[in-house]
Design a protein around this nucleic acid. Structure first.
Length: 641
RNA sequence: GCCGGAGUAGCUCAGCUGGUAGAGCAACGGUUUUGUAAACCGUAGGUCAGGGGUUCGAGCCCCCUCUCCGGCUCCA
């Protein structure tokens, strides 16, 4: 048979040759390094028979994510083997590789639990299996045989998996992989043997529902990771430490931006400095929205349940709402702005000439999130969306969706967020409206994306109950992905509120609603900004843009004069008049991540200058106060990053 | 909400097999008048998350509640 190598060379092999044969034919070095093969985009075992006529890629430890997935999957199996030895009676379920490692879910024997303290013992056990260099041996067996085997072993989850495979895929054989004493039901592929795992670590333990279903057993999940070298592992752990140091829940209070309290679970208390950032973002949204035809409105927080029944939230979203009552009337605090905006739209008569109408509102929302889901500013019960609703005709949908996307990308550009990924989320199970409406809505969003050449992936079933949506995600400076904005198309709400406009034909027509939030929520956006920048915000967002540092007490007055000038130029400036050394004042300003430190001593106070120092920089020399004020002010206006 | 872990001074953390609560930083007072990442000395600061229990005695052991952390589920 023949296979084509990535460099175009054609390799001649015996019929029925395996990946191992191919690697050996190419060279002894590669034979030793080979982990698996890749054909037709699929990774397969080295021992698998090659597909003739296809291109062949030998996967080695240099093959990036493919290779890491392999040994992480291997490590998961080794973990399961160790668990079976250390915890007799443990029931194993599944253990796949994931983005940065692997996990394995097991049901521990009655009365046992697992903590991080147990990791060392398990890791030792795993090491023995790795040292022993146990091969991964694949075996394809009839379903009945595999089922019987796991039934006999009391491995109920494996039995369920097999039954499920039969029911959904109608298969009659399954593959088993054996490493050392352990045989797992597994699709594979695996590396040839356990010793290919050069470095691994168990990281955390958590609960996870069997098959992600909250009504089923809670299993014990252990997350771990594996690499091809101790250095790579150390580097990965180092990155995690860095992420920890950037944690907005730590930096926020440290920088005096916000705090949390038990008395308002899931709600931030914004300190003056944090509020400054918040307000700057609102200002940006207004500045950009005005020219794009957005008009700001204000709608109530609390509505009679009648409104929620009309909007459908009463049926589909009530468990997420905070409810109250007054004088016998049931009331709900708004979790979304859309019903209020729809109601507002309805308060007057519209001509087709008026559309699109674009209502924006930095709307304060409350959602009753599960306590366990709360997470700093990223998941709160009380937040503010940079929300807007566009009411338009069906013909205007594509343009309006495209305009919303343009607005979104323009907004992200201000922060230098370039790596944006779009996801189209389609109809969920829990939804309003007919399938025909959903077809139209999903089609319109896809058309807008296509027309503007925006690449996207489909997130099936992830839409909102009233319509499909486009979510925009950003991968930050550490490669972590965050959801920012969302653009959602909605035929249902206009229907339910019986919204209308008079068309050119003098007849009543139903408008369409586009929901959109670009930063998402100001709370979450600030959380993301802090993590992305490690708290080193750009000048225009910094709560204190410049701090003036008098060298000795006798320079305090000159420092105050500098502050006055900076403030007159519209800058947020303050003076550090404490009786402390300059070194100390600089250190404190550095820790506060103030972008500019302006030192004033004898020389500067005499000739009206300041000695400029930038955050994390050194002495940049002196500059006339007026020049400095003008320069910084220009940078702020231009929102220089 | 569910599983697991944690909660000690404003912050970061010590506190042995149960025997009178500790450090550094911050705060406050004083001295120092400082030239680019921490001057020096001193003072004060705690219902050990809250409640119940075991014990002669509980920060430590047991139970309940709350909050936080890591996940699951969910999501802006």
């Amino acid at each position: 048979m023949q296979v084509t190598l990535p460099d175009g060379k054609v390799l001649e092999l015996q019929a029925g040759a395996t990946g191992r044969d191919a690697a050996a034919a190419i060279g002894p070095g590669l034979a030793k390094a080979a982990l698996a093969v890749k054909q037709r985009g699929e990774i397969r075992d080295l021992s698998a028979t090659l597909i003739p006529g296809e291109t062949l890629e030998i996967v080695t430890d240099r093959s990036g994510q493919d290779a890491l997935d392999l040994i992480r999957h291997d490590a998961a199996h080794v973990y399961a083997a160790a668990m079976l030895e250390l915890y007799p009676g443990v029931k194993i379920s599944i253990g796949p590789p994931v983005e940065n490692g692997f996990y394995y879910d097991v049901e521990l024997p009655e009365g046992t639990s697992l903590t991080q303290a147990d990791f060392e013992r398990i890791e030792q056990q795993m090491k023995q299996h790795i040292q022993a260099d146990e091969p991964f041996v694949r075996e394809d067996v009839p379903v009945a045989e595999a089922r019987e085997r796991y039934l006999a072993e009391g491995q109920d989850y494996k039995v369920e998996l097999i039954d499920d495979l039969v029911a959904t895929q109608g298969i009659d054989t399954v593959s088993l992989y054996t490493n050392g004493p352990f045989t797992d039901l597994c699709r594979g592929p695996h590396a040839p043997s356990t010793k290919r795992i050069k470095a691994f670590k168990l990281q955390s333990v958590a609960g996870a529902y069997w098959r992600g279903d909250a009504s089923r057993t809670m299993l014990t999940r252990v997350y771990g990771t594996a690499f091809f070298s101790q250095d790579a592992l150390a580097e990965h752990l180092e990155r995690l430490e860095q992420a920890k140091a950037r944690d907005h829940r730590r930096l926020g209070p440290q920088l005096g931006l916000f705090t949390f309290s038990d008395v308002a679970q899931g709600s931030a208390f914004w300190l003056p400095r944090g509020t400054t950032i918040f307000n700057e973002l609102v200002k940006l949204s207004r500045e950009m929205g005005g020219p794009r035809g957005y008009q700001e409105v204000k709608t109530p927080q609390l509505y009679d349940s009648e409104l929620w029944k009309t909007s459908g939230h009463w049926g589909k979203y009530r468990e997420n709402m905070f409810l109250t009552e007054t004088e016998g009337a049931e009331m709900g605090i708004k979790p979304m702005n859309c019903p209020g905006h729809a109601h507002l739209f309805k308060s007057q008569q519209w001509s087709y000439r008026d559309l699109p109408v674009r209502y924006s509102e930095p709307g304060l929302l409350h959602r009753n999130e599960l306590s366990g889901a709360l997470h700093g500013l990223l998941r709160v019960r009380h937040f503010t969306q940079d929300d807007a609703h566009v009411f338009c005709t069906e013909e205007q949908i594509e343009d309006e969706v495209a305009a919303a996307l343009e607005f979104a990308f323009a907004t992200y550009a201000v922060f230098g967020f370039a790596a944006i990924e779009a996801k189209l989320s389609t109809r969920p199970e829990n939804r309003l409206g007919s399938d025909e409406l959903w077809d139209r809505a999903e089609g319109a969003l896809a058309a807008a994306l296509d027309r503007h050449g925006i690449a996207y992936t489909v997130n099936a079933g992830d839409g909102v109950f009233y319509g499909p949506k486009i979510d925009l995600h950003y991968a930050d400076s550490l490669g972590r992905s965050w959801q920012l904005g969302t653009v959602q198309l909605d035929y249902s709400m206009p229907e339910r509120f019986a919204l209308s406009y008079i068309g050119a034909d003098n007849a009543e027509h139903r408008p369409v609603m586009i929901h959109r939030a670009l930063m998402g929520s100001y709370e979450r956006f600030i959380g993301i900004l802090i993590e992305d920048t490690a708290g080193e915000l750009p000048l225009w967002l910094s709560p204190v843009q410049a701090i003036v540092l008098p060298i000795a007490d006798r320079h305090a007055e000159a420092a105050r004069a500098v502050v006055e000038q900076l403030r007159a130029a519209g800058l947020r400036a303050e003076a550090d008049e404490r009786t402390e050394s300059v070194g100390r004042k600089i250190r404190d300003a550095e820790l506060r991540k103030v972008p500019y430190m302006l030192v004033v001593g004898d020389r500067e106070s005499e000739d009206g200058t300041v000695a400029v120092r930038r955050h994390r920089g050194g002495d940049e020399g002196t500059e006339a106060v007026a020049d400095c004020a003008r320069r910084l002010s220009a940078d702020v206006t231009a929102r220089v990053r």
